[in-house]
């Protein structure tokens, strides 16, 4: 590599040594809190380490046994499927559509209405999980739950009879604020003149959204979908509502990992599953990067 090309690439004029000095604190933190735990997880995932019992003193190296065991474990398949349902239902569809809908409708609403609605939606987002879980348990409880009181029925245990549906509605409610805010600012970037033109030529609401708005905010849709999908896939709040029950019917991957690690004490196995979840996350992120690159 010649000095000339080196200089042309070094646009900031820092020199490599100083550049490395600048990024090394960040790299160190990433190494310490991201790379190291990830490698550590892989390592534990290759052992039969447990919380108690003989394997907690002298864990043995078991190779890929945990990973193969997971593929053979009906409960893991169940958890993976439920995670997919949870992400599709509450993030990709629920939060996305409701968030966009709110942003679209509030655009033309009175400022007072707009502020109030936004504040309420935000409140759902910023309250601590434990508080929110308690409130929702109070709403969905069979005896004396608010929902049953409103419906005038006394017999539906929502979290037991419809666990996944309850969780999807819950998480849509919980997380819509982010999508709403992101789409609000994205919609502000759509040129008003184009919207005006669309109205003059008599385009319907749906046609306007599809042909004028969507091409402008496609990048935002992708970013938003990626972020909320990853957050939802890793969300542990369902545990606070249903603890994965009844009989594993709402046991998403994070809950499954917790149950395996803490309740059953299978640290090795749960580390292997955590690693698989990490891979799923990476695949989703790569897919997004690919889509984004193709767009530009």
């Amino acid at each position: 590599m010649s000095a000339a090309t080196n200089r042309t690439r070094d646009t900031s004029g820092l020199g490599v040594a100083r550049a490395v000095a600048f990024v090394s604190p960040a790299l160190l933190l990433i190494g310490l809190f991201l790379v190291f735990p990830a490698l550590w997880t892989i390592y534990i995932g290759l052992t039969n380490y447990t919380l108690t019992g003989p394997a907690s003193v002298a864990p043995a190296f078991v190779g890929l046994e945990n990973f193969l065991g997971a593929l053979d474990d009906a409960l893991f398949g169940n958890a993976l499927w439920l995670t997919l349902v949870f992400v599709l239902g509450s993030a990709v569809l629920g939060q996305n559509l409701l968030g966009f809908g709110l942003a679209w409708v509030l655009r033309s609403a009175k400022p007072v209405v707009r502020r109030v609605v936004e504040a309420l939606v935000l409140l759902a987002w910023i309250l601590p999980s434990v508080v929110v879980a308690y409130l929702w348990t109070a709403v969905l409880d069979r005896d004396g739950g608010t929902l049953n009181a409103l419906l005038g029925n006394e017999s539906t245990a929502w979290l037991v009879e419809y666990p996944m549906a309850s969780l999807i509605v819950f998480n849509t409610w919980r997380g819509t604020a982010f999508s709403m805010m992101l789409y609000s600012s994205a919609l502000a970037a759509v040129p008003p003149s184009q919207l005006e033109t669309a109205r003059t030529v008599g385009a319907s609401g749906w046609q306007t959204v599809r042909d004028i708005v969507f091409p402008h905010i496609r990048g935002h849709v992708l970013t938003n979908t990626l972020l909320i999908s990853l957050w939802t896939a890793n969300d542990f709040t369902p545990f606070l509502l249903t603890a994965g029950g009844p009989n594993h019917e709402s046991e998403t991957l994070p809950v499954f990992i917790y149950q395996q690690a803490i309740t059953n004490g299978e640290l090795g196995y749960s580390a292997a599953i955590s690693f698989l979840l990490l891979i799923v996350n990476l695949v989703v992120a790569l897919l997004y990067l690919l889509l984004l690159r193709r767009r530009s």
Binding site: A19, G31, L39, P59
Partner: peptide
């Protein structure tokens, strides 16, 4: 290039730390 080498070194160091660590001592 040197950046990449530093990265590789960091990764290697971290791996060693991880594998030298002993579970259940």
């Amino acid at each position: 290039m040197r950046v990449r080498r530093t990265l590789a070194l960091t990764a290697a160091a971290v791996t060693t730390m991880a594998l030298a660590g002993c579970l259940g001592q």
